[in-house]
Every structure is written in C-alpha cells, then in structure tokens.
Design a protein around this nucleic acid. Structure first.
Lengths: 330, 330
DNA sequence: ACCCAAATAAACAACGTTGTCTTTTTGTAA
DNA sequence: TTACAAAAAGACAACGTTGTTTATTTGGGT
C-alpha cells in the first residue's frame, strides 16, 4: 500500500508536508499543496486509519451492541439512527450482534475495548430492563430501548404511556366511544405503561371506563398463541361490542383484521382498528392501511449516539415519542 | 489505557515477553507466562488493535456494503451469515449501509480502503444485476444476492429456477392439478427464472400447461398497487379456477389470503397457497401458516465471507438453494 | 567444575502516522 | 543590500505493537 512517504517522494516534499495537506493544515503554500494533492491523486494514496489511531490515541470507534436486536426488523432503525450520525461525524460505528447462544456480551465488550471504543450503545430488541456486566462502567455507555435496574447508565426508551394516550385520544376524538384494548402480556413494561396511557385518555376525555375493556394476550411465534389472539378478539367483538379495537402490536392487528373480515365486518367502517409499532410493511400491507403508533427507533439511535458524542455524563432517563401514522383503519 | 509496557513493568519482565504471551509464543517459561498473565489480569490489559494492525500490516477487516439492503428485513440474514463467520475467524466485519441519498458507494469504498479492508462483500436488497465502480477492482470483492454485468466479480445468487421448480413440484405431488402463479414483475430477474422453474416442473410431471397460468403483478408499497394484486387474484380465482395459487412473495400471499377468505374459501382446504421469501414473521402470522420457499440469505452471507477467507480468485457464479418451509397452506 | 548448545529473554528497529521542535525560506522595512 | 520576523518546510521523536537480532540463562555431557 502506498504510504505518506511514497507521496512525499513523488511530490518532492517532506513527508510531514503531506501529512499537513491531508489534515488541512493551513501552513502549506498553495503550490506545494497542489503538488501534494496531485501526487495523492496519481498514487491513489489513502491515509492508514490504524496508523492514525495509534498516533492520535483516539479510535473514533463507537460500539453498538445489539442484544438479540436483529430478530425484529424495524429495530434496525436504531442502528440506522446511530450510523447516520456516526458517518456524519466521521466516526466508526462498530455493530456487534450479541446472541446468547453464540457471542456473549462479555466477548463483544472485550472486542470493543481492544478497538478502544470511545463509547458503547447497548440496544435491546424490545423495551425492557437489562442488567449489564460491570465491564461497561469502564467506558461511556448509553442504553437504547432498555434501561438498567441499578440506574447506573443513561437510557432512552419509547414513551409508551404517552403513545397510548395519544392514539386513544385520537380514537375518541374521531367519535369512537367503546374501545377494546388487546394489550400485550402485562409483565412487559410497555404493556403496563400503555394501559395507563389508555386509561388516562379516557379520564381526560371524561368518558366512562365502562366503555373500555383491556385484555392481555400473550403473543409468541407459535401458532397456538396466535389462534388465542383470534379467539379472544372474536369473543371481545361479540360480547363487548366495541366500535374500535386497539392492538398491542401490528401482527396482532393483522389477526384482528382476519377476524373482523370473517365476521362480515369492514375495518375502518364498521369497526376501527389501531395499533403500535409500525412493523415493517405490515401496516401498509393490510387493507385498509393500519393506523399505528410508530416506535421512535431511529430517533432513539440518534439520541444515544449524540449523548456519547457530546460526552455527557448525566444519568438521564430520556423518553422518545412515538409518531402517529394515520392510515385508514380508524 | 494500560499498555504492554505497563504490564511488563508490573510483571518484572521485558515488554517483548508480554507480547509473546499475548501471542501464544511457546518460548516463554511457564513461570514467566504465569507472572505475565497475572499482571494482565490485574491491570486489565487489552491489546491495542490499531497498533497491532499498523505493525502487522494486516487489518483483519472485511467490508460489507449493504446496497439499500436494510429496508427488507430478512436480508439481514446476509449480514448475519457473514458476521458469524467473521467472529469465528477473529475478523472485523465492517458493515456500511449505502443509500443513494446519503452515502455514495464510492464513499463507502474509500472508507473501507482507509481501513485497509482485505475484502469486500457487496450485497443487494433483491436479486439483481449491479454495476460497480472501478475502485472495487483494487480489492477482492464478492457479490451477494446480485451479479455484475461484466463478469468481473464472483457472485452468489439464489437459485430461483430450482426453487420454483421445487415448490411447484411439491404442489403437484400433493395433488394440486391447476395452478395459478402470481409472479412478480418479469423485468425482475427472479421472476424470469422462477417462471422457467414453474414451467419445468409442469413438464417434468407431464402435466399439461393448460393447467398453469402465469401472471405478473407489479408490487410496490403504495396502496393502489396492492389493490391491483387483490383484484387480479380475485379475477384469477373466478376465471381460471385454480386449486392452488403460487405467489411471487409472501406479502402478496397475505393479500391472497384476504381475497380467498372474502370469497368464503379456506386456505389449505379449498385452495392451496404457496409463496417465496419466508419474509420475517409474515408466513407464521397468517392462518394457516404459509408454506414458502425461504431465501438462502444466511448461506449466501456465509459463502461470500468464506470466498474471501479462502483467498479464492476464480470468478465463479454460484447459486444457493432455497429451503422449502412447509406450513399448512398447501 | 566446565563447556557448549539449546532455550529463553532482552534490545532494538520498524509499521505509518502526527506532535514538537528546528531550520530554512520568504517578504518587508530600514 | 541587510536585518529580521513571520511563514513554511523539514527533522526527529513518539504512539503501542511485532519481527529480528543479540544477549543471557539453563541444563546436560564431560
């Protein structure tokens, strides 16, 4: 590979001058600068990042530990949010996908330490509490889409309660009067908070809680559990007769669409449906399009990266707002 | 940060001895090795990768350029396939998400050159032809999920024809006799090849092509185009009266499910449905589960990385087999 | 005890950069 | 012209490693 000295020889200057040109040092005469740039061009010189790092004693590397993250598609926006900013600031985002079976978190952190990462973003697949190994205390760390039990790290999580309040309020404002909320399993923090938000919206609007029913459904990948969702939804519609159904996540909403259609009803006309996540193409795949609260993953990724960039040290617990994506389902 | 010299001082040996221990050089007396390991442990020493790289003149970095990749969730398996192998061989997979609006491919390649990447995997979001800038010729490059017009680079793509042949044959073997294939737009290479595969299966089975109808549907994100799919599917069912429908991608299949249900038919009973992709949770979200040909993204990622690892130079055009994921839709 | 080869450890240079200090060149005022 | 400060360029060390060469220690055979 061509080095700074090759360029210097080719341009007929001292190698330090080349370094100056590369680093935009203004104390280089225009004529020399031109010669050097020409030589760089001709030889196809590119600075060696590893050598720069050793000398500068700065790595420019920020680690991104994705805790099982990549099994849910839209969470990738977390990475994009961080990556876009990293690129803009000429930093390296080193993404490590940790997976209990294969790479331990410890392994990932070691890896990052060897690269002298200047900060670490630890992101979880779904909003939850995590416990980090002690190693993390050696380097600035931010949690995204999760928070730690001991309050040792700053974190940013989606504002579940506000999202639930917002979508419910939106439903009530549109004239829906009787809402069934098919919530996720309530031992998930998101479900707990959303329940509060929905109730809050009813209270704010002065609508009697008699017109609200909240049920938790355990959602998993297996077909049994999926059919449970359908059965519950069918029962709810029959017994509670809601004019709108709010679902804990978009895949649940798809199932409700099928149930509604099977009952001969039309989504968005006979019954409103709303949901959470904005999961990949799902909301635009169904017809009519599903109105859903989009998770603020991109923003969380950006916020996390920015926290590190600004070298903040406050242990803030930030929350990020969902965005209401209106389609035609209510 | 603690350096190799700090460890040496703490252990009372020359710093070169520490280096030897770190690199598993056998010519270190057990007693010294122990002393050094103890010192490493106590000081929390971690080798500086940047310094190693400068001295060794090897980066251990493999670049992964994801061309708009990350907008389709399952394509992430391409990265996982490469990443898992990278980890195993103690290499760094540097993932760069290129996006026409933001980072040019050239920018990404420059970046990788600065890191002295030893190879580059260029992966596309969907199976297609690409044209790479000349820069790539400076470093070993493999294409994944795409191929280049000029045959300058080795590539691996999904074996579309074989996949189509396989799933069609599977349908025919299960007794379906009259199949409608809702293909993707035929200017997509995948669609062209799959059509051949489907026809081949009919020929192999000795079934008259009168029992096969193939239509292309342009699929996009917009609602109009989606409704086109539904209309076409409804017409096909009414006019051609197929006993099975093969769809060009899972999202299309979901729409067909809705159409089928609206017509009062039952998927898997009154009509079989098959598809391509194994797109995220979609196939297991619908009921009955959708039988689909899973794209071999993970394998392609592995193959591509392995090609670079083995320092191959042959310009092979490899193809990877889909996997039939049987659920209950046919 | 002594020699000598083999085993081990140390010393020193090198990797490709940037930081610091010194030297040379340039331009201006006398 | 000469003097002299400012600007520019160069020389050299340093970053934290590993490769290579040189020095020391070890141990077995006399």
């Amino acid at each position: 590979m061509v080095t700074i000295k090759d360029v210097a020889a080719h341009a007929g200057v001292a190698f330090k001058t080349v370094s100056r040109v590369v680093n935009n040092d203004p104390t280089v005469k225009p004529k020399n600068r031109e010669k050097v740039l020409k030589a760089i061009e001709e030889l196809g010189y590119r600075p060696n990042r590893a050598a720069q790092m050793t000398r500068r004693k700065k790595s420019g590397v920020v680690g991104f530990i994705a805790d099982e993250l990549l099994r849910v598609p839209y969470t990738f926006d977390l990475i994009r949010g961080a990556q876009d900013l990293a690129w803009k600031h000429n930093k390296e985002l080193m993404v490590l996908n940790v997976n209990v079976d294969k790479y331990s978190v410890e392994g990932a952190v070691n890896h990052l330490f060897e690269h002298r990462a200047e900060g670490i973003i630890y992101a979880a697949m779904y909003h939850r509490e995590v416990t980090l190994p002690a190693q993390f205390s050696e380097v600035p760390t931010v949690l995204a889409n999760c928070y730690d039990s001991s309050n040792d790290y700053p974190s940013i999580v989606p504002d579940e309660k506000e999202a639930a309040r917002e979508i419910t309020t939106s439903m009530l404002r549109k004239g829906y009067k009787r809402i069934a909320f098919l919530n996720l399993n309530e031992n998930i923090i998101a479900a707990k908070l959303r329940k509060q938000g929905v109730e809050q919206a009813f209270a704010d609007a002065g609508v009697s809680p008699d017109n609200l029913i909240i049920e938790s459904v355990i959602v998993g990948d297996e077909n049994e559990e999926r059919s449970v969702t359908r059965k519950r939804a069918a029962e709810l519609i029959k017994n509670f007769k809601p004019d709108a159904i709010l679902c804990g996540q978009d895949p649940m909403a798809v199932e409700v669409y099928f149930v509604v259609q099977a009952l001969g009803l039309q989504v968005g006309k006979d019954i409103g449906i709303g949901s959470f996540d904005d999961w990949d193409i799902i909301p635009s795949l169904v017809q009519p399009g599903l109105t859903t609260m989009a998770l603020p993953h991109y923003e969380m990724g950006q916020w996390a990266f920015n926290y590190l960039l600004e070298e903040r040290t406050d242990k803030v617990k930030e929350s990020a707002r969902f965005t209401l994506v209106s389609r035609q389902s209510f």
